[in-house]
Simulated assay, not measured.
Amino acid sequence: MNQFGKLLRQERKERQMTLGDLAKKLGMSVPYLSQIETGIKAVQEDLVEKIVRELGLIGDDANKIHRAAALTRSMFSIRLAGNAKAEDRVLAASLASGFARLSPERKEELRRIMEDVTRG
């Protein structure tokens, strides 16, 4: 679980809300919200705004969750050169968002590929 997920869970539980309660208020599925809370999926800024509103967060609490969301999003991003092809951007985004679900064997396979690439 990442910092955003921990904060979200804490704020949700302090308000005695279940994942289902919050998902319904946000207009999304429970599995999707669960993936955000557990750090499997990145949270988009517009959703952070909805969460802040639904949980009634203000001041430092709202700022804290926005900062945590930004940090979490950065963990899901891969920076590519400006001239990268669209299909390369899609592949990089897919890798970033799905990396945590890869098996250790697949991660090791990627590690070997990247070592070969960096050696030239």
Results as ranks from 00 to 15, higher is better:
10 Q>G: 07
11 E>N: 15
11 E>I: 12
11 E>L: 05
13 K>C: 01
15 R>M: 02
17 M>W: 10
17 M>Y: 14
19 L>C: 04
20 G>A: 15
20 G>D: 14
21 D>G: 14
21 D>P: 02
22 L>A: 01
22 L>G: 02
24 K>Y: 04
24 K>P: 09
24 K>V: 15
25 K>L: 09
25 K>H: 06
26 L>T: 01
27 G>P: 07
27 G>E: 06
27 G>N: 11
28 M>S: 10
28 M>V: 13
28 M>E: 11
28 M>Y: 03
29 S>L: 11
30 V>S: 00
31 P>T: 00
31 P>F: 01
33 L>M: 06
33 L>H: 04
34 S>L: 01
34 S>E: 00
34 S>F: 02
35 Q>R: 09
37 E>R: 05
37 E>A: 02
39 G>T: 04
40 I>V: 13
40 I>P: 00
41 K>G: 00
42 A>F: 04
42 A>K: 14
43 V>D: 07
44 Q>G: 14
48 V>C: 11
48 V>Q: 09
49 E>H: 08
50 K>C: 10
51 I>A: 05
51 I>E: 05
51 I>D: 08
53 R>Y: 03
55 L>C: 09
56 G>A: 04
56 G>M: 07
57 L>R: 02
57 L>M: 13
58 I>T: 15
59 G>L: 13
61 D>R: 09
61 D>G: 11
61 D>P: 13
